[in-house]
Simulated scan of single mutants.
Amino acid sequence: MKAIKIPENQIYNAYLIEGEDMELLKSAAMEFTVQLLSRDPSSVDTGAMPIYQQRGYASCEEWADSVRKRVQNHEHPDMLEIVPNKPEEHPTIISVDNIRDHVTDTVAVRPYEAAYKVYLIEHAEMMNPPAQNAILKTLEEPPEYVVIMLLAANADAFLPTILSRVIEIKAGERDVRERYAEMITEEWAQETVKLLSEIRFRTGREILDFCTHVSKDWKVPQGSLLGFLEIILRDVLCYKSTSQMELLYAQDSVNVIIRMASAMSYEKLGQATDDLERMLRDQTFNVNRDLMLENFLLRLRDTSI
């Protein structure tokens, strides 16, 4: 896995940190947050008492260690984290109310103790259009102490006006086999493989129930599910073209891959791939994600008959 480091020589108000491995993005963002929140806000005023003394710490190092621990424990008052499942009624999107409550309505409040106030928005590609328009107002005229980090799998999900106001940093991609091996340990991934292996025989009701489980019970991030489906379809095409099992990423789903490759023509595979690419491109702008996934699976079923 490749590491990612955010340059610290010049601080910007907004970053888009893009990559497939959310844990890698979070690790880089948290380390950058530690560096930002460890900076002494009193240093801009000549003669001011250093912040570590104001806070009762014996040294600058002790102060920095305190900052790191509080950031890692998600307890620092100048670090705000926004994720898709807050508020709970919108588990698969970041709604406009979420952005208003946690970003736009709070940016005017200055940092409690640090020189910066940091916002970390995980799975930022899950912001729906109203949410993106809401945060755009902050990106257009951010207070000088605000730093917003959008952590996302796909930059294409953002409005052009958002992209024009952020510094983009791309993370190295994880090995595909490593990504698949990690995802297949999850219940949702195992159930997805089971569904795909029987897709020709599934009723519309069963497919709808599966989509409901994805969003309501398992609360799978849309990007993770689509990435998983992308690996499966790639393997189906690979096996159909080469018949070489050793080239497959999904080694523990070989039987499913072979059955799908036998049932689908190249034309139907191309249609399924096009449908998936459209979902990847439009995932943020499609309000009814269950319907989008249901339509994809129904079309996949029909091309497998």
Score class of each variant (00 low, 15 high):
A124I: 07
P7D: 06
T104P: 01
A155N: 07
P7R: 09
Q244L: 11
M22N: 12
D78W: 12
S243G: 08
E89C: 12
A250M: 05
D97R: 13
C211A: 06
T185D: 11
D290V: 09
L276A: 00
R281S: 09
V147R: 00
E191F: 10
I169A: 03
A189M: 08
L208G: 03
F210S: 03
V166T: 10
V220P: 02
E230T: 13
A64Q: 14
S224M: 10
M79R: 11
E75A: 13
D274P: 01
G223C: 07
I162N: 00
K240V: 07
D274Q: 11
Y52W: 10
V256N: 01
L247T: 03
Q283P: 02
A131C: 04
S262W: 06
V220C: 04
Q132S: 04
M260V: 05
R278Q: 11
L151F: 03
L139E: 03
T104S: 08
G56F: 05
Y116Q: 03
R281A: 15
V107P: 02
A153L: 08
A3K: 12
I4H: 04
L139F: 03
S241E: 15
R39M: 15
I207T: 05
L163T: 13
H76D: 14
Q35T: 14
R177K: 12
R174W: 07
I121G: 00
P91K: 15
R234W: 14
R301D: 06
K26E: 14
L291Q: 09
T104H: 04
D252V: 10
Q53M: 14
L225F: 08
D40F: 02
L196P: 03
E198D: 10
T284N: 04
N85F: 13
D40N: 13
D97P: 13
Y266T: 11
V96P: 05
N255T: 10
M264K: 03
H74E: 12
E31N: 14
P77W: 06
K69Y: 09
D21Y: 07
M127G: 00
N13L: 05
E125Y: 09
L163F: 07
L36C: 01
T161F: 03
S197K: 03
Q222N: 09
C60D: 07
E20N: 13
R234Q: 15
I17A: 01
R68K: 15
L195A: 08
I199L: 04
F228W: 09
L151V: 02
T138N: 01
T303D: 13
E173W: 04
Q244Y: 09
P142K: 03
N9A: 09
S38V: 14
E31H: 13
I305C: 05
K26L: 14
S164K: 08
F285D: 10
I184R: 10
